[in-house]
Amino acid sequence: MKYLIRTNWWKWLTMGLLVYTIIGALLFDVPRLAILNETIRVLHFHVPMWFGMIFLFTASVWHAVKYLKTGDQQSDIISHKLAEVGMFFGILGLLTGMLWATFTWGEPWSNDPKQNATAISMLIYMAYFVLRGSISDEQVRARISGVYNIFAFAALIPLLFILPRLADSLHPGNGGNPGFNAYDLDSKLRMVFYPAVLGWTLLGFWIATVKIRLTRIINRREDV
């Protein structure tokens, strides 16, 4: 993360990838599927929100562990801000998914196992912010929320990746449903999807670096 705060080149990469994503997502050929029709293109916007969230939360827990090991307050700030942006991406993923589902699954919330598991993990992370907000002592807050972050991340993985796959789900790749591969064997979608994932994820990290820098400035002013 410190590298990303220090350097700029990857921001241009982010811009390029996202410009490519918009063009590719709207103009390239997609598989002709019933029900989904043209909405298959939402894949390049909805799913990267989840990938972005996972990467941001992973980086967040990484820095939480780093804080617990070193006690460096900077790691706590980084961990907190990454979790904030991750949460934001998660909420966007949930909203875009509900909109998409309204027109493809017939209703915004069909109690799909993945939807429910996601809602639970969102609540778990929301508790992280409530926990932080309720402790005024800086060091205690950093230590307790660092530990909680590990718990939240440990709950996130089975909730998103294991439990939905054990049940019947409307999401591709879960239960009896065809996986991502079945959508597109000729990799038409993949050509846009992977750059889209990287682009949106990097955008999340970009916003996080700005938030981290701002928090540092605010903290420095408070110390003076």
Binding site: L33, L36, E38, G106, S110, L170, N177, P178, A182
Partner: peptide, 30 residues
């Protein structure tokens, strides 16, 4: 489960799904 079955059946016979070909043809997509 019903919905799942419908989705699966339709996916198999989806070769001629309706797409926005006219819209694209007009160039409005740009």
């Amino acid at each position: 489960m019903m919905l799942l079955a419908i989705v699966l059946i339709l996916n198999v016979s989806a070769q001629d799904a309706e797409m926005a070909d006219g819209f694209r043809g007009e160039g409005k997509i740009y």
